[in-house]
Design a binder for these strands. Structure first.
Lengths: 238, 238
DNA sequence: AAATCTATATTGGTATCCAATCTTGCGCTG
DNA sequence: CAGCGCAAGATTGGATACCAATATAGATTT
């Protein structure tokens, strides 16, 4: 049985990324401890982990809350994402072999299929996956981890701003980027990457409506039936 | 009295960055708890914080150790640093105003003075500071934080590989980068940034000698006001 | 000398307690 | 009736003591 506090931080992270826990939600130690059937200290350690990841903000003597990036921070997130992917684009245009390009093309093809099937969710995930794969091809683990962290924060924005994507358009841009890079037209590709992210940002419309305070136990139910069921049952028994 | 575990993680971080705690050093919970005069739990929380920062590696049931990056990881660190600074270089060449360029030039001048004085340490710190200021001028807090984290890891490398810098040369390169960017010669500047970091890496010579296991209390003595642990609280918090 | 077994130390975690601080709600005052 | 202040309750931050699991090291055996 591995690191309990890490397991719990992962569980919470998944819940946040899947938007079952929305920004601003209070993450009370005692409440989470009861829900997971562990001691408060393990929960606190998990929250500290999420805090350094930027998914949770911890206020002294007030507790932990799901992070709620400002519009300024949202722009910074996409600006950083652009910078990272532009940099990788430069590297790939010089170094990537045919197999690499094929891998990217195959991924785009998969997403195209999903769109044809009308599978909205799969198309979304594959769209995200494209960027991940793109970075991974650079072969720099540290860079990959950093990129993943920044991507995680974009999920916080999805709850704050209602997204209205045009998947076909985004997919088209992915294809264009590949083609431009493969032919060595780096500058155009980088501009397209920039435009691509701006496109995503424009897809976000500020949602002014107040979010209801979600019930933690309900939000975390999917996780608990999976790997923490004994603790969960014990918690409900009280 | 602020977050005790954060205070301690900062203290440890400083000690690591100043190479009083060298890579591979075991950071025993009980020992640190006694040294700082706190409970084991706060120490563990501090170690978790450093773990997510990459300055400490935690092995299950074995404990925490000052991180010891492999040569591969060392290359990745500098590769990432290059990518970040190249990206910022592109942004600055388009957006930075005269005041910004002046600020950079003034900083380089300061470093030149330090070199003239023969103040090795100040020159070193100012050299690092140049890169930090460079990133800060992009005005992206997230990017700045990410850069800072990567820079921190380079300090681990300094203990592992003996450095043999040529400060004048590095300083010269800083000046050149500024001039190139100000005149809009982005591509040349980016190549110079790449070369600059490779220059630093070449300055590192693998040091095969074994490091002695340092005594934790001795390594942390500068942070503590006296022999007794209880004085840590008096010295730091009010 | 090599391998195995045992003893001890360390980590991961729980339960309980306490101080400090934040929140809430009540009552008092103008 | 509105606004203020203060006390009660809740929550966090931390300490202490204790236990289980695991790793290290030392002792024993072959």
């Amino acid at each position: 049985m591995g690191n309990l506090s890490e397991q719990i931080s992962e569980t919470l992270k998944t819940a946040i990324l899947e938007q079952r826990l929305i920004p601003g939600t209070k993450l009370g130690e005692r409440e989470l401890a009861e829900i997971f059937g562990v001691s408060r200290i393990v929960v606190r350690q998990a929250l500290i982990r999420l805090g350094t990841d930027g998914l949770v903000t911890i206020e002294r003597n007030r507790g932990a809350f799901v992070a709620k990036p400002s519009l300024q921070e949202a722009l910074e997130i996409y600006d950083t994402l652009t910078l990272l992917e532009q940099g990788v684009a430069m590297q790939l245009s010089e170094r990537l072999d045919a197999a690499g390009w094929d891998k990217l093309k195959a991924h785009v093809a998969l997403q195209a299929e999903a769109i044809d099937r009308g599978d909205h969710q799969a198309a979304d995930e594959l769209g995200q996956g494209f960027h991940t794969m793109f970075i991974a091809l650079a072969g720099n683990r540290l860079l990959q981890d950093i990129h993943a962290q920044v991507v995680q924060r974009t999920f916080l924005l999805r709850s704050l701003y209602t997204s209205r994507f045009d998947y076909c358009n985004l997919l088209n841009e992915h294809t264009k980027i590949i083609n431009l890079l493969e032919r060595g037209r780096v500058k155009q590709a980088m501009e397209l990457i920039d435009a691509h992210h701006r496109h995503v940002v424009r897809g976000y419309v500020l949602d002014t409506s107040e979010y209801p305070t979600v019930n933690l136990k309900d939000a975390l139910r999917p996780e608990l039936s999976g790997d923490n069921e004994s603790q969960y049952l014990a918690a409900t028994g009280t």
